[in-house]
């Protein structure tokens, strides 16, 4: 079967500004993403995770290599690759409903259809009753739910998420993981998800990729063979703990490298 997204020897060098040396952020990464896969990327801080994701989104220029979506090479951002940022990416002048319809409006969809879709996704992320609230009236967790609904409503081929729960408190974060898992089990959307959190990476994923310290390469590619639907009880399951042990070791090595620099 053809992969949905193919990344071929992707490399990114940031030109050093004023006498600073160039920064090699992403180093010849190869990656195949199959349809319906939920992939999490785990890596130490500054290893190039965001850079990789932003290049796939088309928000950052690559230095060399190729990226294909459905065998078409990608150029620049487009609605076929939806993105959820860490925080504050909602349009503050639009209410929840209007935020979710933003992409649909770009597609010139008729208002009736737009409203229906928005209502469905508001339901999906559990925000019924908050349709006409403005972002500043919502908690951080609710804002991220709107951001997820907004990206999904556009029906992208792949959903890119850059530490979407990184700015939330721990309790909210755990609930958001369950919510996202639930959403994925219903929609089977292809997801590329970046995180610092080992438990989060296992809990959500079909595959966990571990990146090396900068320059970012793929150090390990670990399939998570745990069936769906998953619940939070999984986090004390021996299989889960085994993955956790393995990944903690891998990520620790890389973090130590960063510390020694």
């Amino acid at each position: 079967m053809q992969p949905l997204v193919e990344i071929r020897s992707l490399t990114k060098t940031f030109a050093g500004k004023r006498r600073n040396p160039d920064v090699l952020a992403v180093d010849t990464i190869d990656l195949n993403i199959m349809k319906n896969e939920f992939i999490t990327i785990l890596g130490p801080s500054g290893c190039g995770k965001s850079t990789l994701l932003r290049i796939v989104a088309g928000l950052e220029e690559k230095s060399s290599g190729n990226i294909y979506l459905d065998q078409q090479e990608i150029h620049g951002p487009s609605s076929d690759r939806g993105m959820v940022f860490q925080a504050y990416s909602l349009f503050p002048w639009l209410n929840v409903q209007q935020n979710i319809q933003f992409g649909l409006k770009n597609k010139k969809m008729e208002p009736k259809r737009r409203n229906e879709i928005a209502r469905d996704y508001i339901e999906l992320v559990g925000l019924g009753g908050f349709e006409s609230h403005y972002p500043k009236q919502l908690s951080g967790g609710m804002q991220q739910r709107v951001a997820i609904a907004r990206a999904l409503a556009n029906d992208p081929e792949v959903l890119l998420m850059d530490e979407p729960f990184g700015a939330l408190d721990n309790q909210t974060r755990l609930l958001m993981q369950e919510l996202l898992l639930d959403v994925w089990e219903k929609t089977k959307k292809t997801v590329l998800f970046i995180t610092h959190d080992v438990e989060e990476s296992i809990f959500l994923a079909n595959r966990v990729l571990v990146m090396t310290a900068r320059p970012g390469r793929i150090k390990a590619d670990i399939p998570i063979e745990i069936e769906h639907p998953r619940s939070y009880h999984l986090k004390v399951d021996p299989r889960f703990l085994n993955y956790k042990k393995q990944l903690t070791e891998l990520i620790r090595e890389e973090t130590l490298k960063v510390m020694r620099e």
Partner: peptide, 14 residues
């Protein structure tokens, strides 16, 4: 204007 807003709107097809 926050660049996240511009980037979000590009990924939403603007």
């Amino acid at each position: 204007v926050r660049s996240e807003l511009l980037e979000a709107s590009f990924t939403l097809g603007s």
